[in-house]
Design a protein around this nucleic acid. Structure first.
Length: 588
RNA sequence: GCGCCUUUAACUCAGCUGGAUAGAGUAACUGCCUUCUAAGCAGUAAGCCAUUGGUUCGAGUCCAAUAAGGCGCGCCA
């Protein structure tokens, strides 16, 4: 798990600190506390591989001009035995350092040594993080927002894993509460329609089940043959469930009480829906460690226990028959209701119990929720309640994602091209490749509203970044295969210090930064950084390919060195794409 | 009304804890295939980093105000 960039940067810091200590000992500079200075990677490569702003931040404390300080520091430096071969004072007082050829050669070797685990770091020191994402309502199909949340959450969990955390994926199943009531009511009404003479007539006249649903739903999908009240789900999927139940069990529920009928239909349809969510997400390459059911919290009594616990904290009160939580005690602008006047808790209560379970009962060091931005108002409430319960609310982090707008022909697309129905996760994946979906949803950071160009995602051209990256991989594979066929041994012993043209150096430098980038992505909860990394790596490789022939290299030694570099590039690209769960085609 | 997010090239977006001349991809224009995959590469052009103040050696980055856009403020989830 070597991170050569981090190592070099740390060594550099020590070199500078030692140098200043030497100056202090000689009384060349005042014995002041050393201000914190930065070691950064300059954007402009002519400024070296690392730059230190030490001289500038010390100007005040040392009461000397920055360049003078820089000269003193450099006078004390001995680079022998370090990864650097020279320093240089530049600009207002930056000290720039240049990495030696040996260092670049070590990078390539290191990648090949570490293989499939190159890029992994131990930043997380095994801390347990639970990533909850999608958690779509099981009463209906997943929408495009869930598709984005799925890609982001899944890759985030993956990035955290690579950064040395123990990450788990979880789906919170809202299989209780009001929306399940609504689900039952909708199913019940649809079932009664199917049982009715008129409804069955419509079904019988239709040629297929799908047509039957369409007929009940209405020709244009809007005006329904049987109008449904406002507080019901009107999707075709509800009709399908009702009809399926009727086909399998007949009209036996017709004379049941409304409650019993709802119960039977929910028990029939809900598991099918949940299984459907699992199946569809799996197709999207998302596999959860846990499917956590809300109903479990009710059955075990945890929900009501949380209310009691909150009461004990003294931060609750009763008003108009309802139990309120005094969130204003925790800096939230409004109090909120925990238990309604009718005795039924609001959705927040099981949510509090659920997060208490994550952080206390199950002992995760961190819980991350990937949520739609429309839920942002709810986060401070949840945190306030956790604080009241003595849980450090800093352990709960939320990644908010903005809405996605799908574009087709430059216009906002609402309906699926194939089915003509609203675009769901499933219909989206029928329209565009899974690689493209996962890649595109991870091209932008979560907290930016973005436009998803459907035409571009299916396009098989250079304009489509996912193909651009995959093409680089295929090119590498073909190149490596050809060279092997040409007689190059897979384990050829190459002098990698021969790789010294600008394109080669740039490529190696970028290869070296994968561990750093993994850490950055984990620290900022932003897997899009890995997507960008892979695009950049592809660009640098294509540039290398164009400028440095491997097959026709000037010497056999150089050929072997470039061949080895190509293997390292392929390994690095594979690892980046593996984090994102994007396929690495060997041929295109 | 209160709160959160956003504002960088014609378009879509990067810009890590403040650093040197603000970057990429599209679109536009110009070149490069008898040579390892042209699904590629090189080049040109394109900017008052929304506006105004402040903090300091130094601001796209931090703070405040303003403007425009998105979202949230239920005994809905």
């Amino acid at each position: 798990m070597a991170d050569l960039i981090k190592n070099a940067s740390q060594q550099l810091r020590e070199i500078i600190e030692n140098s200043i200590a030497g100056l202090v000992a000689k009384q060349a500079v005042p014995d002041e506390a050393l201000p914190t200075f930065n070691i950064e990677i300059p954007a402009d490569k002519s400024h070296g591989d690392f730059a230190a702003n030490t001289a500038m931040v010390c100007a005040k404390a040392f009461r000397m001009p920055p360049r003078k300080i820089a000269e003193l520091i450099c006078g004390e430096i001995n680079l022998e035995g370090t990864p650097f071969y020279k320093w240089e004072i530049a600009g207002p007082g930056f000290i720039n350092f240049f990495l030696s050829k040996k260092w670049f050669s070590d990078v390539v070797e290191n990648v090949l040594d570490e293989g499939d685990s190159y890029g992994r770091t131990n930043m997380g020191t095994g801390k347990k993080i639970l990533v909850e994402f999608v958690s779509a309502n099981p009463t209906g199909p997943m929408h495009v927002g869930n598709a984005r949340g799925g890609a982001i959450g899944d890759c985030l969990a993956s990035v955290l894993d690579w950064a040395g955390y123990h990450s788990e994926r979880e789906f919170y199943v809202n299989d209780a509460g009001n929306q399940i009531e609504k689900f039952g009511k909708s199913l019940s009404l649809r079932y009664m329609q199917v049982c009715s003479d008129e409804g069955r007539k419509i079904c019988d006249e239709a040629e297929s089940d799908e047509k039957a649903c369409q007929a009940i739903y209405g020709e244009d999908g809007n005006s329904e043959a049987f109008p449904m009240p406002d507080d019901t789900y009107r999707g075709v999927d509800i009709i399908e469930h009702a009809k399926k139940y009727y086909d399998e069990n007949g009209n036996k529920l017709e004379n049941f009480s409304e409650e019993e009928r709802k119960k039977a239909l929910v028990e029939f349809a809900l598991p099918k829906n949940i299984a459907g969510l699992e199946r569809d997400l799996k197709k999207y390459r998302i596999v959860y460690d846990t499917w956590y059911k809300e109903s479990k919290l009710h059955e075990s009594g945890e929900t009501m226990k949380i209310v009691e616990k909150l009461k004990e904290t003294g931060h609750t009160y009763e008003q108009e028959g309802a139990i309120w939580f005094r969130a204003t005690d925790f800096g939230v602008d409004k109090d909120f209701v925990l238990v309604r006047a009718n005795g039924i808790p609001t959705y927040v209560v099981p949510d509090i119990a659920y997060h208490y379970d994550k952080l206390v009962t199950r002992g995760f060091d961190k819980a991350i929720n990937v949520l739609g931005a429309d839920h942002h108002g709810y986060v401070p409430r949840l945190k306030a309640a956790l604080e009241a319960l003595g849980v450090d609310s800093g352990k709960l982090d939320v990644v908010l994602m903005q809405m996605v707008r799908l574009l087709r022909n430059g216009e906002v697309a609402k309906l699926s091209k194939r089915s003509g129905k609203a675009i769901t996760l499933v219909t989206l994946l029928e329209e565009i490749p899974i690689d493209a979906a996962r890649f595109f949803f991870n091209m932008r950071e979560a907290n930016s509203q973005f436009e998803f160009d459907l035409d571009l995602a299916v396009e098989q051209s250079s304009q489509n970044p996912v193909y651009y990256v995959q093409y680089a991989h295929a090119r590498l594979c073909s190149l490596i295969t050809n060279l092997k066929a040409d007689g190059l041994a897979d384990d050829v012993n190459a002098n990698l210090e021969l790789l010294d043209t600008e394109r080669e150096i740039e490529l190696i430098r970028h290869i070296a930064s994968l561990p750093t980038e993994v850490n950055n992505a984990a620290r900022t909860y932003d897997p899009a950084k890995i997507t960008k990394y892979s695009i950049e790596l592809a660009t640098l490789f294509h540039r290398f390919y164009d400028g440095c022939s491997v097959k026709n290299a000037e010497t056999e030694e150089l050929k072997a060195a470039r061949f080895t570099l190509c293997k390292a590039v392929r390994q690095t690209l594979r690892n980046a794409l593996t984090i994102l769960k994007i396929e690495c085609p060997e041929k295109m």
